[in-house]
């Protein structure tokens, strides 16, 4: 009886998983393989994809000084954004998890943080323009307070604006997983630490942070991967002057240069895969849900 019933359940499981597996195969796995294959292709102005096995797309990537400058700029953005979103996200998650006593207030505050995630990113970027622009609110305030005499140009279409955009858009990716980890911490552990005379700083460093590590890891991977591949924030808030890997891929694509864009993307992909491997090593995500 047991064996008779087990087989259909198994078949049903395959049928149920099939649509998702098929879509990921067609629209994710194949395209990623495509990127790798195309990166070895040749190209011409009117023939944008010539099947071939050449390495010059990679040679171009690694021999250009611009590439290194672009990668360096992107990695720098990554590290700075990561540091800011980590500290800010951790603080907010800590507030949500330990400072709010009732579940409804927790839920409402959590929703307040989450709602912008479901609205348009482009609009949220554009909405910084009236703040940061030459005649924007910040310049108006600074000038009327007499702090500066001329409008500050570095506020908008600058590295500062891009960074601000990243923090504004992606801190949530830190808050959610860190909050999720914190919400699972058994409150009696903290009580026990308190009873043993631990200061609040000691509780933070010896109890909360170690138990929150999986959340921190997940949030970090999110933020790093998004910033590494970003081209939208850089174009909208960077004003064309700020280099980024994503943007140079996008620029190559706008000239229909698929193979060099693909070579660039493979390098970017390599970095991302390293991150995924690191993530899987550090945490078993299924246990975190």
């Amino acid at each position: 009886m047991a064996t008779v019933r087990k087989t259909p359940a198994n078949v049903i499981a395959y049928l149920q998983a099939f649509p998702m597996a098929a879509i990921f195969f067609i629209f994710f796995i194949l395209p990623i393989c495509m990127v790798v294959v195309v990166s070895f292709f040749d190209y011409q102005t009117y023939d944008i994809l010539i099947p071939d096995f050449v390495f010059f797309n990679y040679v171009d990537v690694f021999s250009s000084e611009t590439t290194y400058r672009t990668y360096w700029a992107t990695v720098r953005f990554c590290v700075i954004t990561w540091a800011i979103t980590l500290v800010l996200g951790f603080t907010i998650a800590h507030f949500l998890a330990f400072y709010l006593k009732t579940v409804p207030t927790q839920l409402v505050c959590f929703l307040i943080c989450t709602i912008p995630f479901w609205t348009s990113n482009v609009i949220r970027m554009i909405s910084w323009i009236p703040f940061l622009g030459r005649n924007g609110l910040i310049n108006q305030a600074l000038m009327s307070l007499g702090i500066v005499d001329a409008p500050q140009e570095w506020l908008l279409y600058s590295e500062f604006a891009v960074m601000l955009g990243y923090v504004h858009l992606y801190t949530l990716f830190m808050i959610v997983p860190i909050f999720n980890s914190m919400a699972r911490i058994d409150k009696s552990l903290i009580e026990a630490a308190k009873d043993q005379g631990a200061s609040s700083l000691q509780i933070l460093t010896n109890v909360v942070i170690p138990l929150t590590k999986p959340g921190i890891a997940i949030g970090s991977i999110f933020v790093l991967a998004i910033v590494m591949g970003d081209f939208v924030t850089v174009s909208v808030l960077g004003g064309g002057q700020i280099p980024s890997i994503g943007k140079s891929i996008q620029t190559e694509l706008s000239y229909l240069q698929f193979p060099p864009a693909a070579a660039n993307a493979v390098v970017l992909l390599g970095i991302t895969i390293l991150m995924i491997v690191a993530l899987i090593r550090i945490v078993d995500i299924r246990k975190e849900l």
Binding site: M20, F24, L30, P31, I32, V35, L49, G246, T272
Partner: peptide, 22 residues
């Protein structure tokens, strides 16, 4: 399948988009 889903979540969108386009 789970790993693929997670990879798809964190894969830089520009790479996915380029692959589908190509």
């Amino acid at each position: 399948l789970l790993y693929v889903a997670i990879a798809s979540l964190i894969m830089p969108s520009v790479v996915v988009s380029l692959g589908i386009g190509a």
